[in-house]
Design a protein around this nucleic acid. Sequence first.
DNA 1: TTTTATTTTTAGCCTTGTCTAAATATAAGG
DNA 2: CCTTATATTTAGACAAGGCTAAAAATAAAA
Lengths: 218, 218
Amino acid sequence: MFSRAEENYLKAIYHLEQQIQGEVSTNAIAERMDTKPSSVTDMVQKLAEKEVLSYKKYKGTLLTPNGRKIAANVIRKHRLWEVFLVEKLNFQWDEVHEIAEQLEHIQSDELVSRLDRFLGNPDFDPHGDPIPDKHGNVKRTEKKLLSECDKNQRGVCVGVKETSAEFLQYLDKRKISIGTKIKVLGKEFFDGSMIIQVGGDQFFVSQKIAENLYVQTN
Amino acid sequence: MFSRAEENYLKAIYHLEQQIQGEVSTNAIAERMDTKPSSVTDMVQKLAEKEVLSYKKYKGTLLTPNGRKIAANVIRKHRLWEVFLVEKLNFQWDEVHEIAEQLEHIQSDELVSRLDRFLGNPDFDPHGDPIPDKHGNVKRTEKKLLSECDKNQRGVCVGVKETSAEFLQYLDKRKISIGTKIKVLGKEFFDGSMIIQVGGDQFFVSQKIAENLYVQTN
DNA sequence: TTTTATTTTTAGCCTTGTCTAAATATAAGG
DNA sequence: CCTTATATTTAGACAAGGCTAAAAATAAAA
């Protein structure tokens, strides 16, 4: 069993590994966890003992397959709870992180599996991030900003970057939400604006909008 | 803010106060929490400092109104989550305690209030225990066993004592669940069996059944 | 290649919540 | 009322996780 603190370290290292693509430094972990490097050293040594990560003094750490699986499971729970909070309790997308941060540590495989079913086995959380499956595998389909899409490209809305009430309301009005299919009909290089198709409608979006909407292309 | 451990002590003392009806002894707390009396002394002194309970050496403790409110709030969360687990995730009545024991410590008033609404503002948990309101007030309507009811008395099913699958299935078959209204039509003193009315049906229940079903009378 | 700057680790201390063993109150029995 | 039994508290220790300050490695610059 892993303590709350240990789970949080594993999760942080998991995320940093993906960002940095390689060994994760002590300082990087300390910064992300908002603790001191000395505390990180201690914990990382303990986790190396438990064989969930490999650690060489002064060289950084990498999760072992087992450590990666544990981290992915915490993230799975975090994202499933986020879906619950938004879909069932009608929280806004940007209000759920802190609460999910607590809920992700509840220990019960049965609970997770039932929650997953209750939510309809979602693939993405309300921010558009993929939910790892029970084995820790993630559908790794790069999400990108709508503004990075080319003309005629199709994608599925999987999340937002900015989460202001105004922006969410704008999306509501345009009937854009998680899972909405979007096709880029045209792109104006001068101001970065686009014409997109959503369902039967097609309309204009400014660069500001396009830069804050994540889509998953295939 | 109160730590998980502190919340658990407050909850335990709250329950003991109700059972014992008076000052709660150090040993009683230790037994209920499965810790040593010396640990209890330490914690109780700390909680007295925080003015959530009053404590006189060698004399036992009593919650202050503030302490009682905090305890009731933890219990409120526990019972709301139990309702969620049973009603929404289809857990059995007897499978939910451990998980609720974890969920009760999640900190977010907004979450609790939304959960409450999502569940339809329930008054009782799946075991028939009353759910305190947000101010810590409990509808104190003594629940009693069906077997303790007199002839012609009416009551509402609020829970069970035994939670075996067989018993729950029996209740299912007889369409008895939380909220079901029951009227005692007759009582046989020789073997403790009863004839009761449930909805349109009336049928016979053995003493064993009547001794494991809680009803709330008014 | 030295010297300086940065990163990382070590050493020692703190808090929380627990424990054991010993000391002290209170309660019970003769 | 005195003695034994039980309940409770104190004292000292420990593990988890964190911090500070100082030491040691590594990296960067001269």
